[in-house]
Amino acid sequence: MEGMNVFAARLFPKDNRFVSGHRACQGCAEVLAVRLIHQILGRNTMVASATGCMEIISSSYPDTAWSIPWIHVAFENAAAVASGIEAGLQILMKKGRMPKRKINVVGMAGDGGTADIGIQALSGALERGHDMIYICYDNEAYMNTGVQRSSSTPYGASTTTSPAGKISIGQQTWKKNVTMIAAAHNIPYVATASPSYPFDLAEKVRKAAKVKGPAYLHVYSACPTGWRLDPKLAITIGRLAVQTGAFPLYEIENGKLKISVKTPKLRPLQDYTKPQGRFRHLDDATIAEIEKRLFEEYQKLERREGLIF
């Protein structure tokens, strides 16, 4: 246990809106993030979910893991559906057709539904300024369809459509920075978060719910199945992701960037890649190349810290 006051764990809200009995894989940290986030958001929340792991494992008729209003329409449109829910609620409250109350409207999708097929709907919803929270649960590939690469898959990872082979190191592009794309919409709140840091996650969810206008959360979601990782390491790997710079935690509040978990000296990337089958083929030179890039990216964050942009 690092980075967490162990005695504070009991203080985490108990209002569970996502029940046991869901069909997520053993050790799924994405479903953990979903549960924790909705423990914070509570009952006055409506969710528009994209097609993907979380939709499939939570909603096979007649079983739903949700005990808040939830809708799934399609893959690429969670942000649009959520924006519709928000616009609908606002106008109905304005016209006195329903009681005025604070309802958190959430759009949720995986990295494929966010960084790839859903990015247009996301950009539109953020630009229009709906008072909603969009959450990208990033497990760094299309896990639901069998671990195909997405634009959020990290460099060097082997997936079923970016396989490592005799002449390939696996994924040959660098992870798309959707968080910064969201930030470029000048929305009031943008953050990266991880269920491995539940209190940081909780705080960010509270802020996202509180701001007026769109908030974007990019949540690290370890996938033991797709990453070929021992399920029991799903939380530990999230800490290593932060400590190695593979997934830094930061927030951008009204344009001001703050690194949430400061890591003055990044850990060797090997600590992060070794437990994961998707990186096992990488040679030292490639790891060094990735390490250099992550270091530069982390330095960029440090330079931006405190600046308004």
């Binding site: 559906v81 924006s83 519709g84 829910i85 616009a87 609620l89 109905l92 709907a121 919803a125």
Partner: peptide, 18 residues
């Protein structure tokens, strides 16, 4: 920003009773 989103927004708005 597109017709795809137009119909998607409509699904969201109609789903809350608007």
């Amino acid at each position: 920003e597109s017709e795809h989103s137009a119909m998607s927004v409509c699904c969201g708005t109609a789903a809350v009773g608007a």
